[in-house]
Simulated assay, not measured.
Amino acid sequence: MLIIVTYDLYLFMTKIKLKKEAIGLRKQGFGIKTISYKLNVSSSTVNRWCKDILLTPEQIFELKRRSRDPYYGKRLKYINSLKQKRLDAIDKLRGKGIKEVGKLTKRDVFIAGIVMYWAEGFKKDRRLGFANSDPAMIKFFLNWLINNCKVPKKDIRLRVGLNISHKDRVHEVEKFWSNVSGISINQFQKPFFQKFIWKKAFPEPNKYFGVLRIRANKQLDLFRKISGLIDGLKLYTAG
């Protein structure tokens, strides 16, 4: 049996389908404007279709909350577009910065290592040392220490510093820093712990790896030389 569907009948069937979808969305608690946007139907039409549907107190409360929420609906789309533009601008600037640094010469690395020690190195107990929580900085400093300053790898000692609340993760943390540094766990000294308990709860505590302290044995002469290297950089600031 052949059924011929006229254009008017097609429009009528489409309207019935849209009305059914609108009623279903309204029963789920969606607002009139949201349904209108989803179905590409005027708000007045949706309002007429759904006028007899009673919302629960919870649904009414949620609609009121959304109406006051600056991040809902089209406003959220606008906020996200601004956020994406900002992220794109940040990526562009980051790429520009990487390009400006370019390939480092041996002297570039040498000077950078001095600056790092000036900022984060140990200076008071006449023992060469450095501490940081950034894996990239740890790698850079060890590369500088071994390749530029010719410190034997066997003379390097590492020590992990952790908050006492992460005491049960010592082995995991030491393994992490051993992989980062390329230094055997056998060259790790006894860890030290911060005794206070954090009040702030971190969202991903398993990504906390504390601070790594680097020491180099039998390097008093190098320690004194680095002090001189830092003084050499200070002369630049003196004009």
Rank of each mutant, 00 (worst) to 15 (best):
A201C: 09
K51R: 15
R127F: 02
S81A: 06
K195H: 06
T105D: 07
N148F: 02
V173H: 05
I156L: 13
D134H: 03
F130W: 08
R107A: 13
K139M: 09
R224A: 10
I3P: 01
L39Q: 05
Q194T: 10
G210N: 05
K38G: 02
V151F: 06
I185W: 02
Y7K: 15
F110L: 13
D125M: 07
L158Y: 07
F176L: 07
F141K: 05
L104C: 12
I32L: 12
N132S: 01
L54C: 11
L11W: 01
L54T: 05
K64L: 06
D88C: 00
L233E: 03
L142T: 04
W177E: 05
L87Q: 09
W49G: 12
I230E: 13
G121F: 03
S181D: 00
L142G: 07
E204L: 15
K19V: 00
G232C: 11
P203H: 04
K124T: 13
F122Y: 15
W118C: 15
N206D: 14
P152N: 10
L229I: 01
L93Y: 05
S43W: 04
L82I: 01
G161I: 04
K19C: 11
R127G: 05
R94V: 14
P152L: 04
I230P: 01
I4Y: 11
K83L: 11
R126D: 15
I79M: 12
D52Y: 11
I111D: 12
K199N: 07
K175P: 00
F176W: 10
F192H: 05
K92F: 03
V170I: 13
Q187V: 02
K175D: 06
D231R: 07
D168L: 06
L76R: 15
E204M: 11
K77T: 04
V115M: 14
F12H: 03
I3W: 13
N80S: 03
G31P: 13
C50Q: 02
Q59H: 05
I60M: 14
D8V: 08
I53T: 04
G29V: 01
K123G: 09
E204Y: 13
L63W: 10
V151A: 09
T237D: 14
N179G: 06
I60P: 09
M137V: 11
D221V: 12
V109P: 04
R26Y: 13
Q189T: 00
G95D: 05
L220H: 11
Y71Q: 06
M1C: 03
S44V: 01
N147Y: 06
S178Y: 00
L9F: 04
L142E: 04
T6K: 15
P152A: 03
G232E: 04
K15I: 02
Y117S: 12
K64M: 07
W144R: 04
G24H: 08
A112L: 15
I197H: 15
V173P: 03
K234G: 12
F141H: 09
N143P: 00
E174W: 01
L212R: 10
A22W: 05
P152I: 02
R157L: 13
L11A: 02
Q187H: 14
I79Q: 03
E62S: 02
I230W: 05
N163S: 05
I53P: 00
G210M: 09
F12K: 10
E120I: 02
D52H: 12
